[in-house]
Design a protein around this nucleic acid. Sequence first.
DNA 1: TCACCGGATTAGAACGATCCAAATGTAACT
DNA 2: AGTTACATTTGGATCGTTCTAATCCGGTGA
Lengths: 350, 350
Amino acid sequence: MPSQTPIGRKVTLNDIAAGCGVSRATVSLVLRDSPLVNKLTRVRVEEELRRQGYVYNRAAANLRRRTSTSIALVLNDLANPFFAEFAAGVDETLAAAGFVTLLGCTGESPAREQAVLGSLLEHGPAGIILSPAEHSKAHDVLAVVGRRVPLLLFNRELGGALPEFAHWDQLMLDNQHGARLATEHLIARGHRHIAFFGGHHDSSSCRQRHAGYVEAMHTAGLRTEPYWRIECAPTRLDAAHHAPALFAGALAPTAAVCYNDAVALGLVLGLNQRGLHPGRDFALTGFDDIAEAALGTPPLTTLSVAPRERGQQAAQLVLQRLQQPQAASHQTVAPVQLIVRESSCPPLTA
Amino acid sequence: MPSQTPIGRKVTLNDIAAGCGVSRATVSLVLRDSPLVNKLTRVRVEEELRRQGYVYNRAAANLRRRTSTSIALVLNDLANPFFAEFAAGVDETLAAAGFVTLLGCTGESPAREQAVLGSLLEHGPAGIILSPAEHSKAHDVLAVVGRRVPLLLFNRELGGALPEFAHWDQLMLDNQHGARLATEHLIARGHRHIAFFGGHHDSSSCRQRHAGYVEAMHTAGLRTEPYWRIECAPTRLDAAHHAPALFAGALAPTAAVCYNDAVALGLVLGLNQRGLHPGRDFALTGFDDIAEAALGTPPLTTLSVAPRERGQQAAQLVLQRLQQPQAASHQTVAPVQLIVRESSCPPLTA
DNA sequence: TCACCGGATTAGAACGATCCAAATGTAACT
DNA sequence: AGTTACATTTGGATCGTTCTAATCCGGTGA
């Protein structure tokens, strides 16, 4: 049960009305600067508003008008710079449209996601932007969110079969195309033996990126060995750990397409420990273009997803949905851009 | 069981009451599980709540009870990992207490800060956590926030004389002590010519850190040359740009205490471009311990401020203030911890 | 019979805004 | 003077909840 926090008595429309001898309704008209009200009284009322330090009670107005001026933003991990940038973009755009952002973090826990969504819904947001926790199920999200308030899925798909009537909007990254670009870039540099490194196969984004890698390889007429697919947790540490697995197979790769930047940076560490110089002896690419990507040694070739712009886009999509609640659901795939840096060197043998 | 809510009107207490033949008041009592209500009717009502897929309207309740269950979090820069972690900590603790976070970003603009604060206040937060924009003035903040809703200042002081009746709570970092620790560490390693690099003098945190540096130098009986104080914007780029200024004076420093990690990482780049190897030819320290600090080359000696814990602490302080609105204002200074890594090497000449 | 009790329930007035229909005041026209 | 037109203003109901002060009811004791 949430605690009960008394707040001091506020100045209301009645106080203003009494203060300058008009009715509450007139003051309300002034606040929404209606053309109905006489210039003279408007001035008088406005002065009184200032004098008493009135602050508008939007909750009361929203109750009466059955509207809402808030949007819930539910993120799996705000501490991740990618999502932080995204959140900044969302808030920026929402604020410009007069909306306020209700923040909620789930810490990758579907259970907390349920709780957070439930709690935020009680505040009656007009819409929801959700980047689901890993293993979050469509069915559970639908059960708590219902069909009343529009939801925009960002970044990840939900597990489980999507009930056919839950036609949520989606904003996803072009994972497959991005990985394909990275792979084609390595091929163009002369690599023939290219691994796909990191991530878990039960993550939708990882599957998509892997698919892009396979697509590029096969299009180029190159083979993909099963032992060139190394799974590990999408963290630096686990990636560093799994680096040796790259060279355990019969045919050693000369390059690797990594699931994301974190994994790529971990692989850099792991290679260094083996005495290899990534960017010279071994080529690799990342995904996300996090701030550290440009600064490591070597600077990382990666795919920029422009998280702030994605945030702005997500906010736009939700606002648009509010305008047209009945329009068909919108599936958006945001483009990604290959950023070539020094980590994607040509093979030594070339 | 997915909700069977018809699209259109929201389910209210009246719907539930009508649905199971009791009064609205009784349903309300059930919701707040009051001991007054009969076990049997409670069961009936609870079933009806589930059946109709009722969601609590906290805004209406808050209006009636003149309470609030939200806290505004206003940050100068959410894209900065430091503040993102902080926000995650705040949200985590607030959520656990049944509160919801209203997010607002100001992008270091005092004008937007005014607008954001004004907008958030209309939603009636019970309290505010504010990390002010640069050059934000106490007078302006007071003008828009007023004295009704408690404010916690985080991280930065406000410019201008603080009106005596605005006794806001504060949570600051121990900037001066931190910079002193870093400087003393470099001195202990054998450095005698130490610069203070980056930041602007009109930022309170920069002044404090510089003061700590001066304090340590003078305590150790060392001189500080004026040209060892190099100002630049607290960004990587500008820092890299200003690196040559370190060696423009008569006596070149062998080490630098940097304003923060971003500046330190920029300086690393700048030194590399001059053919110097930071961590071998030149020592430096940062401040903040952002994620990248541990991973650069060299790993950065820096001061850990534990932003997530600071967020939790900030939330606690606000919640505590809500319990005791009349208590004397609380000035908290959070300790910082020196993290020694490879960037703070001994001088070559030693 | 009646007053009284305690547990369970409820009608109706709030909270602070908005909406609607109706009222008011003023000037202009038959 | 009476009617109309127009520009302003306003009382009262309303949004979904909670609070207060009743009310209802079966059982007791006098």
